[in-house]
Design a protein around this nucleic acid. Structure first.
Lengths: 359, 359
DNA sequence: CTGTTAGCGCTTTCAC
DNA sequence: GTGAAAGCGCTAACAG
C-alpha cells in the first residue's frame, strides 16, 4: 500500500505538505491539486495505526452492553451503531453478560489501544480503569463523578404505569421487577410507581427479585419459577378479597412471563388483571407490542449518548441527560380508559402523547 | 503510561530484552524475572497501536451483519462476540442495513487499520476492497473464490419443512420467502422444499417476494401487504378446492406475519392450515417459539465462523462449512405426526433429532 | 506557505 | 542470550 512518502514523491512535494492537505492545513492551490491527484492515482489511504500512534486517538468507541438477547438492548445497539457511524466512529462491541472481568478486559484494551471513548450500560466500576483523557458516557446508571449519564425519565415511567392501570380500572396494584447489584436509574421506576400509589391512596405491593434468585436478570424466563411463586402468593391472598387487578412489571420480558403465568393460573388478561410492562418492545421489532408498556425511545437514548460522547471528545463540559421522554402504549393487556374525557396527560392514544409534566 | 523503555530502564536491561519476554523470546532466567517484576511494578501494558504499526496486525475483527432487529442476527451476533472474545479478538460492529456503501466504508477502514479479519453475512462484493492478506469468512453466502462460507444445510432445512408439513397431514403446500439481490445459500431452502414435494408427488406453489416490493427483507412487517395479497390469491383459489393446508415461510419473521394474516382471514392455525417458519426463534430469546420452525444453531455457526477465521489467520487452507445441522422444532403451528411409529428421521421430538441423511 | 526532522512505542534484524 | 539501532507511517514543531 502506498504511504504518505510515496504520495509526496509522486507529487514532488514534502511529506509535511501531504500531511497538511490530508488534515486541512494551509497549502498552496497548485500543490494541493498535485497532491490530491497523486493520492487518487496511487489510491492512497491514511494508515490509521500510524496516525493513532502519533495523535493518541483513533476513531474507535467501545460499546458495553450486558446482553443483546433482550430486544431492548439489541434495538439500543442498532441505534447506537447508527449514531456512531454518523459521527465517524467505529464501535467495538463488548457484551459483558454482567461479567466484570470481561468489561475490565475491554477497558484495559481501550486504554492501551487509545480508543476514543466508551459508552456503556451499567458497567462495573469504570473509574479505576479509564484514563482521565478518555470520554465515558453511562447509560441508565448514574455515577457520582464526572461521568455523564443518559437515561429516560424512569420516575415518570413508573408514575405513568401506575396512573394508567388506575385510570383503566385497576384498584389494587402489584409491582414486580428484578434488580441487579449495581445501583441503576432503573430502580426509579419503582419509586415513581409507589409515589403515585401513595399520593392517590391506591393500595399496592412491591416485589423486587434479586439477581441472586435468577440466572440472568436480562432473561425473565430464567425467573419463571420465582415469578410463579410471587404471583401465587399475591393473587391467592383471598383473606379479604383484595387481590391485585393491575400489575406493573419493570420490564417487558418480565411482563411476558407474568402474562403467561397469570393465564396459566386461570386469570384473564386484561379482563381480570391488567398488565403493563416497560420498554415498549415489539414482536420481531416491528410487529405489535408484546404487552401494554411504558415505551422508551432507544433512538433518543442513542442520540443523546453519542452526542454527549462527541462533546466530551471536543473538550466540552457535559451534563447528564436523565429526562428523556417515555409514554404509555396500549398493547392488549390493558382495558380502555375509564375517564377519556378527563385525560390531562394525553396518554390515551399512545403515539401522540406528550411528555407528562411532573407535578 | 509506562512504555517499554521505562520497563527496560527500570529492570536494567535493553528494550529488546523486554520485548522478548513480552513475546516469548529466549531470555535468561534472571533477567526475565527482573523484567516481569518491573512490568508489574510500573503497571506496564503493551501499546496496541505501536505494536500494530510494527507487526501489521491488530486483534480486531470486523463483523458485518445486515440488521439486528431480527432476533436471528442478534443471537448470531451474541454468539460471534462470545467466540471472538474466546479467541482474544475484539469485534468492530458494522450493521450494514443492506447498504453497500456502509460496508465498503468498513472494508476500507479494515484495510487501513490493519484489522485482522472480517466475518460477514451476505455483504457486497468484498473482493476488490480486501487485501489478499486479510482473513475473510462469509456467512450464508457462498463466494466463488477463496472465501470460505459457513452455513447450515439449507437444502436439508427446506426438505425438513416440507416433510414435516406432509407427515403432519398437510396435502397441499405453499412456500413463501423474500429474496434479496445477492445470491445466498438461503435460497436453497426453496430448492430442498421443492425437491421433497416433487419426489413425493406433493402439489405445491412457491412464491418469492423480491426485495423491491418491501422496504426491508429483514422485517416482514414491511411486507405485510404483499403477504396479505399472496395469501389471498392462494388461499381463496376455490376453483377445485385445492387450497394450501401447509405453509412454509422462509424465515420466522415472515411466518409470524403469515400466521396473523391467516387468522385474520378466518383460518385456524394449525387446524386448518399448518405453518412452519425458519430459524427457530424464541420469544425474548428464551421463551417459547414464535411458530413451528426449522431451527438453526447460531452458536454452531459462530463457532465454525470464528474457527475458520482463526485458521485463516494461521495461514491454513480453509474450506467452506455448509452442512451445519438443522432440525424441526414444534412451536404450536403444526399438528402431531400422523406416523410417529414410522419416523425414520427422529424429528418428532424436536430436540433430540439427528441430522437427517440426505437420500 | 513549504521542507526537514524528531519522535509516537514497538518489533526485529544484526552483531557481539 | 543480549544490546544497539533501524524503521513501521504519520503528525507536529520548527526553520526558512
Amino acid at each position: 500500500m502506498a504511504t504518505i512518502k510515496d504520495v509526496a514523491q509522486d507529487a514532488g512535494v514534502s511529506v509535511g505538505t501531504v500531511s497538511n492537505v490530508l488534515n486541512g492545513g494551509r497549502v498552496g492551490e497548485e500543490r494541493r491539486r498535485r497532491v490530491e491527484e497523486s493520492i487518487r492515482r496511487l489510491g492512497y489511504q491514511v494508515n490509521g495505526l500510524a496516525r493513532g500512534l502519533r495523535t493518541q486517538r483513533t476513531d474507535y468507541v467501545v460499546l458495553i452492553l450486558p446482553n443483546i438477547s433482550n430486544p431492548f438492548y439489541s434495538t439500543l445497539l442498532q441505534d447506537l451503531e447508527r449514531e456512531l457511524a454518523l459521527a465517524g466512529k467505529y464501535p467495538l462491541l463488548c457484551i459483558s453478560e454482567g461479567n466484570p472481568e470481561k468489561e475490565i478486559r475491554y477497558l484495559k484494551m481501550a486504554k492501551n489501544n487509545k480508543v476514543d471513548g466508551i459508552i456503556g450500560v451499567s458497567f462495573s466500576d469504570v473509574e479505576e480503569y479509564v484514563d482521565e483523557s478518555m470520554a465515558v458516557v453511562s447509560i441508565e446508571r448514574h455515577f457520582p463523578q464526572r461521568i455523564p449519564c443518559v437515561a429516560c425519565d424512569n420516575f415518570l415511567g413508573g408514575q405513568l404505569a401506575a396512573e394508567n392501570l388506575v385510570r383503566r380500572g385497576a384498584t389494587e396494584l402489584l409491582f414486580l421487577q428484578t434488580i441487579s447489584s449495581v445501583e441503576s436509574e432503573v430502580s426509579r421506576r419503582r419509586d415513581g410507581f409507589e409515589e403515585y400509589c401513595i399520593v392517590h391512596g391506591i393500595p399496592y405491593s412491591s416485589v423486587s427479585i434479586s439477581e441472586n434468585q435468577v440466572s440472568s436478570v436480562f432473561s425473565a424466563f430464567s425467573a419463571r419459577g420465582v415469578i410463579h411463586n410471587v404471583l401465587k402468593v399475591h393473587m391467592e391472598e383471598t383473606v379479604n378479597d383484595r387481590r391485585p387487578n393491575g400489575v406493573f412489571a419493570g420490564a417487558d420480558h418480565l411482563a411476558v412471563v407474568v402474562m403467561e403465568e397469570l393465564r396459566a393460573m386461570g386469570y384473564r388478561v386484561p379482563e381480570d388483571v391488567q398488565l403493563i410492562g416497560y420498554d415498549g418492545l415489539r414482536v420481531m421489532n416491528s410487529g405489535g407490542l408484546f404487552v401494554s408498556s411504558i415505551y422508551q425511545d432507544t433512538r433518543a437514548i442513542a442520540e443523546a449518548g453519542v452526542d454527549c460522547l462527541i462533546r466530551l471528545l471536543n473538550g466540552e463540559q457535559v451534563e447528564s441527560v436523565m429526562d428523556l421522554p417515555v409514554r404509555f402504549m396500549e398493547g392488549g393487556t390493558t382495558l380502555g380508559l375509564r375517564d377519556p374525557k378527563q385525560s390531562r396527560t394525553g396518554q390515551a392514544s399512545g403515539w401522540d402523547s406528550e411528555k407528562r409534566v411532573r407535578e
